[in-house]
Amino acid sequence: MKKRDVNNRLMMLFTQHRKRLWALAYSVTRDYHLAEDTLQETSIAILNASEKFDESRPFLPWALGITRNQSLKTVRKHAKQAKPMSSETLTILQDKLINYVEDGEERFKALKDCLSELSSENRRVMAMKYFDKKSADEISSEIKRSETATFSLLQRLRFTLAKCVKAKMGRLAHE
């Protein structure tokens, strides 16, 4: 296969598995922007390593390995980042991501449903955090609450959503 065709195939596989690669990058960097940057570096590293890609072997474990290295590199570059999960835990997570059964559409629908069950005010607080990427400090001044109260509110909302999505996914599995 020509290099260009291999690259096209790699990019297609990259988009197919983007969510899982992001999950690993985010787990190491724990920063939305750094995870996005890491993923960009990963896509380039994958293309640069295309000659090492063995078509007869699955793409995902190979790409997760590259993502892991890139993520750790990112964390090293940003000295302020706290120590990420241990190497053993990272390996567990990689295995989990390889075996994860894709349920993105159902999960997204469940999440949208759960969001609609929140109050309009709380949805907006979540939008400030996850869409506008504002810090708890910035949100607190906008909603006129203390930073601690805002942090607690965001945490409570994340937990509520996680529980709600789990319940909805559980119900779907039994239907």
């Binding site: 999950a23 939305y32 997570l93 996850y130 994340r158 959503l161 996680a162």
Partner: peptide
């Protein structure tokens, strides 16, 4: 893993 995927989808 579910929690992290939720973070990815929230945007």
């Amino acid at each position: 893993l579910e929690f992290v995927l939720q973070e990815e989808m929230l945007e």
